[in-house]
Design a protein around this nucleic acid. Structure first.
Length: 142
RNA sequence: GCGGAGGGCCGGAUGGCCGCGGGCGGUUUCGACCGUUCGAGGAAAGUCCGGACUCCACAAGGCAACGGUGCCGGGUAACGCCCGGCGGGGGCAACCCCAGGGAAAGCGCCACAGAGAACAGACCGCCACGGUCCGCCGUGGUCAGGGUGAAACGGUGCGGUAAGAGCGCACCGCGGGACGGGCAACCGGACCGGCACGGCAAGCCCCACCGGGAGCAAUGCCGAAUAGGGAUCCCAUUGCGGGCCGGUCGGGCCUUCUUCGGGAGGUGGCGAUACCGCCGCAGGGCCGCCUUGGCCCCGGGAUCCGGGUUGGCAGCUAGAGGCGCGUGGGCAACCGCGGGUCAAGAGGAAUGGUCAUCGAACCGGGGGCGACCCCGGGGAACAGAAUCCGGCUUACAGGCCCUCCGCGCAU
C-alpha cells in the first residue's frame, strides 16, 4: 500500500513560490522529545497560546544537545485515543513544515493539542498559528 | 409482496506529493544515507472470567476461614465460555428467555389490608338450642357464601346435612409410587392415599466441586546521583545451665638458654571459666490454627559490597496461532490426518499528513401510477495494538448474503 515514490524531480509545478522546507536548511535536524523531564522544563519556560494549539518553547543550556527538538502532547481533554492521536499527527506535520524554516537551533518546542480545533482547523491556518506563536516566543526571549 | 426469526460477512474507494516505525541487504566520515519489504480492529475498547509466561511463597497431614461456581451430558489447555439435551415460561410459528442444587438440618422474614398468615382463624352471613320487653340477646355448630390479600386447610358437579364440610362419590388437580425407558438431568406410569407437607436460599445457611499471592510498571542485565541492608574492626551487652573436641588463663611435663631470679619453644592425658566462642534449656516473636516440626533474637561509630527512583538493553512477538482446501469421526461444539497460505511490534507510544477525483447516509427541488430517475447541497458509524492467547460484555452510520416461519396473491 505504499504509493510509488516520484523519483523524477518534477519541473512542471511552480515550487518557486513555496520553497520546499526540507531542501533549504540541511544541517538543522528535528529531534523528537521523549523524556518527561524535557517536557517539564519547556513548560516552566515561555508559553504562547493560539486558537488551534498551545506552544511552549525553551532555549536550552549550552552543551545540552544539538538541533531543534520538538515534542507533542495531548491531554485527555482532547478526546478519546483516536482523537488524541489524530491531533498529534496534525501537529507533527505542521511542525515538520514550519520548524525547519523558522525554528532556532538549540531550542526545545512543545506543541499541545486542543479539543476539536486542532483536528478541524484548515491545515494552512494551523501552520500559520504555529508560525506566529513561535515568532512571539522568540521575541519574548530575546 | 407484507411482517417476523436465526446466522454469516463488509464497514469508505482510487491516485499525486511529502512523511513515520520494524526486519533484511548495501554504503558509511559511525551522525547517518540508499534500496527493498511488512505495518491496527471486529470490537484493537471495558479489564469481567479462564490460561500461557515471570517473580514471590511453599515440610506433611487434618481442620477452619475466605472467594467463586451451581439442572444433566459432552467439548476444551482451562473457564463463569461453547454445543447437545432436560425442566419452567413466552410466541399461531420460525424461535426466544430463565441466578435452574437443597425449604421433611436449622434460624430468620412474610409489610399493608384482613376475623384469621403457618402446630391458623368466626367479622358479616347461615343453622340449631335457650332466653326475649318480639327490636333482638346468649351459647354452640359451620367455611359452603360475602369481604381482605401476592397467597386463605384444592376445583366443578351430584349426593348428603339443622346448616355445612372430601363427610361420601365422579372427573380434574395434588402426594406417594411397583415397574419400564434414558449414561444422566428427567420422562411415562399400574396401583395406592381424601388431601396432609405455603413462599423467600439475589436473608443467613446446608451440600457438592474449584481456588496459594502478585503481575510485563512482572522479571533479568548495564550505567549514573541520593536515604536505608550484609561482611570486618571498635565500644556498650536477655536469663539459667554445661568445661564443652575451640580460644584464653593457671599449673604439670618435655626440649633448650640462663646473669640461676627466670626466659623461649613444644605438648595437652590436669585445673579454672570472668571474657570471646560453642552446646542445651527457658523466654519472646514468626510460620492462619492444631500435632509433629522449622526459623529468628540488642544498640552506636568507622571501612568495603548487594536492593528501591531516572535512563538504556532484554522480556517482545512462531503460538493451545489465524485463514482457505481436501479427507475421516461426531447431531453439534469440536477433534484427527494431509497439504497450502498469512503472520505489526511501538515505547511521550510508528501504522500517517495533505491535495484532487469518486462517493453511502441524510436534506432540498423536480419528474413518474409505481419500482425509480434527474438536479443541487452534504461528505462516512463505533473506535487506535501496548506481553501473548481463549471467551464474555459493551459501542457501532450504513450495506450485502444465506436459511427458516406466518399471512396474502398467483400457479
Amino acid at each position: 500500500m505504499v504509493p510509488p515514490k516520484a523519483l523524477a524531480n518534477d519541473v512542471s509545478t511552480s515550487d518557486a513560490a513555496v520553497p520546499s522546507a526540507a531542501s533549504i536548511c540541511p544541517p538543522v535536524r528535528l529531534i523528537v522529545l521523549k523524556q518527561r523531564a524535557n517536557f517539564l522544563a519547556a513548560a516552566r519556560a515561555g508559553r504562547q497560546g493560539t486558537a488551534s494549539m498551545g506552544v511552549q518553547a525553551r532555549k536550552r543550556e549550552a552543551g545540552e544537545a544539538v538541533g531543534i527538538r520538538v515534542g507533542f502532547t495531548c491531554s485527555k481533554k482532547v478526546g478519546n485515543a483516536v482523537a488524541r492521536n489524530r491531533a498529534k499527527r496534525r501537529l507533527r506535520e505542521a511542525a515538520r513544515a514550519v520548524l525547519p524554516e523558522i525554528g532556532l537551533d538549540g531550542w526545545d518546542y512543545v506543541l499541545i493539542g486542543r479539543p476539536k480545533v486542532t483536528d478541524q482547523r484548515p491545515f494552512e491556518a494551523l501552520k500559520s498559528d504555529l508560525r506566529q506563536a513561535i515568532e512571539r516566543l522568540h521575541r519574548g526571549r530575546g
